[in-house]
């Protein structure tokens, strides 16, 4: 019963936040329209930039909505969800989700989207390349080319970085405390990269 109440409450809060955001975007657009008509170009510009940020945040929340609630046996950390938009597109949209297990295993998923800085980096990541580093390899995650790196700290804890570039966006999955490479790749493949890319682009 408690769970149902919690879910209903969370749903109401989500609907309310969406409604508030919609009102904010509407208000920003009205503000931009009025400023532009009155010849206040700088005011119109500022309002449009603010509206764009709000739209970015809405996109980020949608992305969080389609990400899996669980990665392997690690559930998501509700408080770890984060969406941010750089006010002027310098870093673009930033989405973060954390997964934690009872044991030492943990995962962090970060998506940096629509950033002009990433276009160059992604072009390099997407290129086939030869590397002599035994801890680095190219894999496919949900049919997207990705770069996988393995590292081990002084305590012997293995961690994995998987970078998936798409367009001017980059998804990074960091997994710690899991030794088996196949398990890590399997976890990465549960992320709907295709849907995320469609939402962002």
């Amino acid at each position: 019963m408690k769970t149902i109440i919690r879910l209903v409450f969370a749903g109401i809060m989500l609907l309310m936040s969406s409604a508030i955001m919609a009102q904010t975007v509407e208000a920003r657009l009205d503000e931009a329209q009025a400023a532009y008509r009155s010849g206040d170009l700088e005011g119109a510009r500022f309002a449009l930039q603010q509206a764009m940020n709000e739209v970015d945040l809405a996109i980020g929340r949608e992305v969080l909505g389609i990400l899996p609630d669980q990665l392997g046996n690690m559930p998501k950390v509700d408080a770890g969800d984060n969406v941010a938009s750089a006010s002027m597109g310098f870093a673009g949209l930033y989405v973060k989700r954390q997964y934690r297990s009872d044991g030492p295993a943990s995962a962090d998923l970060q998506i940096l989207a629509d950033s002009p800085l990433l276009a160059g980096i992604n072009a390099i990541l997407a290129l086939p390349f030869i590397t002599g580093d035994a801890n680095q390899k190219r894999i496919r995650v949900a049919n997207y080319r990705a770069l996988m790196q393995r590292s081990e700290d002084s305590n012997g804890t293995v961690s994995w970085d998987i970078q998936v570039p798409f367009g001017s966006s980059l998804m990074t999955l960091q997994i710690k405390g899991i030794d088996n490479e196949n398990d890590v790749v399997a976890m990465a493949n549960t992320i709907p990269v295709d849907q995320v890319a469609r939402l962002i682009q």
Partner: peptide, 11 residues
């Protein structure tokens, strides 16, 4: 932009 946003087409 207004109509697209209202219909949930954020991109």
């Amino acid at each position: 932009a207004r109509s697209s946003y209202a219909s949930g087409s954020y991109s």
